[in-house]
């Protein structure tokens, strides 16, 4: 069993969870993920590493509560245990000296991109950050990003920031006004797709951390397969970072939705039975 050291809500619907995982910490690198199971009857789900503490032997993930597994995670507290947390899995993000890198993130991706942004900064890049959120109150870890970013942008729809536009517009302006050599993007599929589309005609290298459904996370099942360029790739071992200009987005959108009805059934079942269980 794996111990939960901390779990707290960062903003509505998005939580961070800190897990004691000394085996994971030793080798983990930015861009990698873990597979975890919230309880014995749960699913194995992938979560990106948002931070880690070598001395404490702990890792931190940020997750959005969207379905049964993530809802179950929101109910965990310090001292609780979960049966499975395995990792680090997947290839690390490519970290090199690229010049100026724009890190564009939304929802859970704000957490997931943080170690990549930090490593890029450390590797000598000029880091710029673009956070996408519906409204100010959904933004977290702002101070962390401000510390490592040369420039910090937000695209939000609530008028608090000086922008009323959705990410495509803000991104376009950012790309026009700044000498960006590379874009890295993590968040919902739509955000990653939008970023990739925006940079395509500008020929700016754009890398995305894809989030297809997974089962084992070790390359054994092919659940996470998707078309990238000419071939089919397994996101858990060939990725999760891929060239955004090569991804077959349409396929990914559909594959991610493939169990929609079941997910709702699962949620309803859990809602109905959780009281008896706890």
């Amino acid at each position: 069993m794996v111990k939960i050291l901390n779990r707290k809500k960062l903003v509505p619907n998005i939580h961070m969870i800190e897990i004691s995982a000394p085996d994971v910490v030793e080798k983990c690198q930015p861009g990698q993920f873990v597979m975890l199971m919230p309880d014995k009857k749960g699913e194995r789900i992938p979560l990106s590493l948002a931070d880690w503490d070598k001395d404490k032997g702990s890792i931190t993930c940020v997750f959005m509560a969207v379905g049964t597994s993530t809802q179950k995670l929101t109910r965990l507290n310090q001292g609780d245990e979960i049966p499975v947390c395995v990792g680090p899995l997947g290839k690390p993000a490519e970290i090199d000296k690229f010049g100026t890198v724009l890190c564009a993130a939304g929802c859970y991706g704000i957490g997931a991109i943080y170690p990549i942004a930090r490593a890029l900064k450390k590797a000598g890049n000029t880091v710029m950050t673009l956070i996408d959120a519906k409204a100010k109150y959904l933004i977290y870890w702002e101070d962390r990003f401000k510390k490592i970013s040369e420039k910090y942008f937000v695209s939000a729809r609530d008028g608090f920031y000086d922008c009323k536009d959705y990410i495509p517009k803000v991104l376009k302006d950012v790309l026009e006004e700044n000498p960006i050599d590379r874009v890295v993007s993590i968040g919902c599929t739509y955000l990653m797709y939008t970023c990739s589309e925006a940079t395509k005609h500008l020929n700016i290298d754009t890398y995305v951390n894809l989030n297809p459904l997974m089962v084992d996370g070790t390359g054994m099942c092919g659940a996470c397969r998707l078309r990238v360029g000419k071939g089919t790739k397994f996101a858990c071992v060939d990725g999760p970072e891929f060239d955004g200009h090569e991804v077959d987005w349409n396929e990914l959108f559909y594959r991610r939705k493939s169990y929609f009805d079941d997910e709702i059934r699962s949620m309803c079942y859990w809602e109905r039975t959780k009281k008896q269980r706890k």
Partner: peptide, 13 residues
């Protein structure tokens, strides 16, 4: 392994 035959008692579909 994930017991999808017992879904939704088990979460994996």
């Amino acid at each position: 392994l994930m017991r999808a035959d017992l879904f939704p008692e088990y979460d994996t579909p």
